[in-house]
Write a protein that binds this DNA or RNA. Structure first.
Lengths: 296, 296
DNA sequence: GGAACACATGGAACTTCGCCATTTTATCTA
DNA sequence: TAGATAAAATGGCGAAGTTCCATGTGTTCC
């Protein structure tokens, strides 16, 4: 019993004429007759009443016809489902992200992706960059939104946001009066940073600013997230270093200032395993790239 | 693309091992590998990720698996439906019947048939015997419940009720006092009969009773149904001739008597076209025969 | 009653499916 | 590091099944 038999049966049932049915099936009449006979024998049911001149369905054939059509429809649906999944229209996507990504880029990407691929289920996990790298290598997430570098040749990364970091100061801080802060102004200033785990690139870049001056910054406090940095700043503990997108965490007690001539690059990257074959991943990556290039 | 491919895919997906899957399919591994490859090529979707040592489903394969199982299930359901219809468990049955059959045998047969074959839809038409014969020959009904003879070699008949007819008299009629009526008592009695169309056999048999006596019965009225005969009798118009089962049409004004030594046979038969292949018909006929033999 | 139509039958050719033997590659172990 | 083992892929061959062509047979229509 093969699919062929069902298709042959349906065609003959529609034409009630072996010759015409054979033409529609692009074959000749004798093999069609034989296949139908074999099929009837195999299932033990006469599907047609034939009297050398006229063909008609038996009662069993009439009941079989809609079921046979259902078989063919189900076959098409199955193949279609596989092809859609292959194109990434069905699937699952597990996304890791650093907390700072939620301030800006992540929600708009997710929103757009959901609109275009409504049948892909998305699972989000807030993870630090090193945890994301481990999760990627352990196949627990498909995509990471993290701060480079990741330090693994198995992982592909593309920058999606080339933003900058800024200093956040209590609004009554003396330096807050200046439009641009000079690096010399930062001598003896107490700093509050997110811990190096959160964003090693930014942490290291901040420290490297001071290679060309004769002092090192005084880090008085490390926080586990940027929201906490801003909180400590507004409490007057010190001056914070946060990505510029954190300005969206409105806090009236805090102002943001750049350091003159010393931009702090704050790159957010998309990261995924090179060997990951999840079709939904490709779409997510290309969609993200498109959105980011549109914004420029 | 054939059913085989779906079954092969499901088995490999369940085993995730071409060798074991091949064993389960009672074949060797190489042709199985080849068939899966061809199938993947045909639908344009990689269903398995294989790396010479391990096999696993791709995302598309995971989405395809339940759909493929659905295909196989639908195939089985389709074949099962055809086989059930072939056995007469699904179907339609159009039944013609004479009015007198409703008094006794028909309801119990229908009730029992419905219980055993709940998925056969039954359509009932009250028709006279000649109309039933025409309807049978014109393929408008599958079965007739009628009074023989039918007079067509295309039609098969089997008696299902060998009942008797009786005389019905107004309860104050002189003859009503007698337990058994002698045929001589019927001289000059006005008779009421159902018209010959209704039951030619009974009509003719009644007339033939009088071949051996020197008078013919006086038929004063013909009615179009037995209920009407009984009604006319109770109105005192005359003496009726009705099937014994008509006694169930309770009427306190009427009594029933037999004619001594002259039983009036009242045969009800099942009739159907010999060439009718409706499987539900066979079951109906054999069930009816069983019920009738049980009752004896 | 003959012609035309339509399904069935029989035999030949081609396709393809499955088996066997072998190769390739990945993993495990010494 | 290298050999052993396991598992999928590859290639050639035989057999089975499918298709085509030619023909047979029973119906229907003129």
């Amino acid at each position: 019993m093969e699919l062929r038999h069902f298709i042959y049966f349906i065609t003959v049932a529609e034409e009630l004429h072996f010759g015409r049915a054979a033409t529609r099936l692009q074959m000749t009449q004798p093999p069609l007759s034989k296949q139908i006979q074999q099929f009837e024998e195999e299932i033990g049911v006469a599907l047609f009443k034939r009297n050398k001149r006229h063909v008609e369905l038996t009662t069993a054939g009439e009941f079989f016809l809609p079921e046979a059509r259902e078989v063919v429809a189900q076959v098409h649906q199955a193949v279609d489902t596989a092809q859609r999944a292959h194109r990434g229209e069905f699937g699952r996507l597990v996304i890791g992200f650093v907390g700072s990504a939620t301030y800006d880029i992540l929600p708009s990407i997710i929103r757009e992706y959901r609109r275009i691929f409504p049948h892909v289920s998305i699972k989000l996990h807030e993870l630090s960059t090193p945890d994301q790298v481990a999760a990627l290598l352990g196949d627990r997430i498909d995509i990471g939104l993290l701060h480079p570098p990741v330090g693994s040749s198995l992982i592909e990364t593309t920058p999606i946001e080339r933003g900058y970091a800024a200093l956040s100061l209590p609004k009554n801080h003396p330096l807050a009066k200046k439009e641009k802060i000079q690096i010399e102004d930062l001598r003896d200033v107490p700093f509050i940073l997110a811990s190096r785990d959160i964003w090693p690139g930014l942490y290291d870049e901040f420290l490297s600013l001071f290679k060309n001056v004769d002092f090192t910054p005084k880090i008085v406090q490390e926080a586990t997230e940027y929201q906490m940095v801003v909180g400590l700043v507004s409490a007057g503990i010190g001056v914070g270093v946060v990505p510029a997108t954190a300005e969206k965490l409105f806090n009236l007690e805090v102002v943001y200032r750049d350091i003159d001539h010393y931009p702090l690059k704050a790159v957010l990257s998309l990261a995924y395993l090179k060997r990951n074959t999840n079709p939904a991943l490709k779409n997510f990556v290309s969609l993200t790239k498109r959105i980011c290039s549109d914004e420029r």
